[in-house]
Amino acid sequence: MQEFADIFHNQTLLVAVLACLTAQGLKLAIELIRKRRVNLNYLVTTGGMPSAHSALVGSLATYIGLNMGWSSPEFAIACLFAVIVMYDAAGVRQAAGKQAKILNQIVDELFQEKHHFNEERLKELLGHTPFQVVVGLLLGIGIAMLFSTYSSLQIS
């Protein structure tokens, strides 16, 4: 049972989750400012500004680098993991989102004439622009640095 409790004391994990949740919260705030309405779906959806995936992996790699060393194998693994996740967010998932948008347009145009077609719209906001990925990364780095600085002040 102690092993399970240890998970909640893992500061590296907590920093990464905090960065992800912060990014998701910022998505909600940005959407509130842009459209002047609350859309709670932004708390649980992919895509949008900033990238929560990038914030999570950016904070993870940064916190590991700060605490275990920039030349540690752990940092190397976290850094490569971050690059793969961010590439996927801006590349593969962004392309899938563009394809979904085009397919939704085709379905809309084909079935304008009240044909009874049980269509399920594809999710278009899957990935991120490179800018959204960079902003998420910078957010994650900032959160990891703040948390690391705060943690070192507590220890001293």
Rank of each mutant, 00 (worst) to 15 (best):
F75A: 08
A100S: 15
A89W: 01
A100F: 14
A89E: 02
C79H: 07
K114N: 15
A78R: 04
A96M: 11
K98D: 13
C79T: 05
I84V: 14
L103T: 01
Q99Y: 03
V107A: 03
H115K: 05
I77W: 10
Q94L: 12
K101G: 11
N104D: 05
K101E: 01
A78S: 15
H115R: 05
L103S: 04
F81W: 13
L110I: 03
A82R: 02
D108I: 03
A90N: 04
I102T: 04
V85M: 10
A78W: 11
M86V: 09
N104E: 04
E109K: 05
C79W: 10
R93V: 11
K98Q: 11
F111Y: 15
I84R: 06
G91D: 00
A96N: 11
D88R: 10
I102L: 11
I84G: 08
V83R: 11
M86D: 03
A89I: 03
L110P: 02
K101W: 00
K98M: 09
M86H: 03
A100D: 15
H115M: 08
V107G: 01
I102N: 00
C79P: 02
D88Q: 09
F75W: 15
G91H: 01
A82C: 12
F81L: 04
V107L: 05
Q112R: 07
K114H: 15
V107I: 06
A96H: 08
G91L: 02
Q94I: 10
V85Q: 00
M86K: 01
E113R: 02
Q94C: 11
A76W: 02
Q99G: 05
E74A: 13
V92G: 12
A95R: 02
F111S: 04
L103D: 00
F75D: 07
E74V: 10
Q94R: 10
L80Y: 15
A96D: 10
R93N: 04
V83D: 07
K101H: 06
A78Q: 08
A82S: 13
E74S: 12
K98I: 12
